[in-house]
Computed example of a mutant assay.
Amino acid sequence: MANPLRGEVALVLDGERRVCKLTLGALAELEDHLQADSLAVLVDRFESGSLRARDVLLLISAGLRGGGWSGDLSDLLQAEIEGGPLEAARVAARMLALAFRPPQ
């Protein structure tokens, strides 16, 4: 079960419920893949509305690995995300919101 207090979001991938979490390592990987100069640039890219399907997949892939998944982007490209593109975008947005929320 995903725990939002720990920044976790659930995603059903190929019929299996998985945990996604943007750890510092996952964020560094994401910066590299998206060629973002900083975390602020990365967040701005997602908040600006200029999101591409590849951006969502990279974010989901990084979050899955942050949650302990051992796959990679090529595995994700072949996988079925329950709820389709809309659910993938929702999970990506939720991960970002949780990763950058102020401490409680």
Rank of each mutant, 00 (worst) to 15 (best):
N3S: 12
E82S: 12
V41W: 07
L39W: 06
D32L: 15
L64A: 07
T23A: 06
S74E: 13
S74P: 00
S50R: 10
T23F: 02
G67L: 08
L73H: 06
L76G: 03
V41S: 14
G15P: 04
D32Y: 15
V56D: 02
H33I: 11
E80C: 05
L39M: 11
R6G: 00
L77E: 14
L34K: 13
G71F: 10
L98H: 07
L27H: 03
R101D: 01
L39H: 08
L64Y: 05
H33C: 11
G84A: 11
L39I: 14
P102F: 12
M95S: 01
S74K: 11
A26R: 09
L77A: 07
A92D: 01
A89N: 01
S74H: 14
L24K: 07
L98Q: 03
M1E: 14
V19G: 03
D44K: 08
D75F: 08
I81G: 02
P85S: 11
S61E: 15
V41H: 09
F100W: 13
S48I: 04
L30K: 13
L98W: 06
P85Y: 13
A2W: 08
F46V: 02
R94N: 02
G25Y: 05
V43A: 15
L98D: 05
G15F: 04
Q35M: 11
V19N: 04
R54T: 12
A99D: 01
A36H: 10
L42I: 12
L51V: 12
H33K: 14
M1R: 09
L13T: 08
A53L: 07
E16D: 10
A28V: 09
G68M: 06
R18Q: 14
Q78K: 13
P85V: 13
V91K: 10
A2Q: 04
L76W: 02
L86W: 11
R101W: 00
K21E: 14
L86I: 10
R45L: 15
M95V: 05
V56R: 02
G68L: 04
R17K: 15
D55N: 02
V9W: 00
C20S: 06
G83C: 02
L24Q: 08
R17N: 13
L34N: 08
L22P: 00
L42F: 06
Q78H: 09
D14T: 01
L58P: 02
D32I: 13
K21R: 15
G49A: 07
R54S: 15
L86N: 05
V56S: 03
A89C: 01
P85I: 14
L98E: 04
S74A: 11
G66N: 09
E82A: 12
L59P: 01
A99P: 00
N3M: 07
A36W: 03
Q104K: 12
E31I: 13
A79T: 09
L76P: 09
L76S: 03
D37C: 05
R65I: 13
V12A: 04
K21M: 11
A89E: 09
R6H: 11
G7A: 01
L39V: 15
A79M: 08
A28N: 12
A88P: 00
A89Y: 00
S70I: 08
A28G: 09
F46I: 04
F46G: 03
P102H: 14
I81S: 01
D75Q: 06
E16R: 07
F100K: 06
R18S: 07
A36G: 10
V56T: 05
L59Q: 07
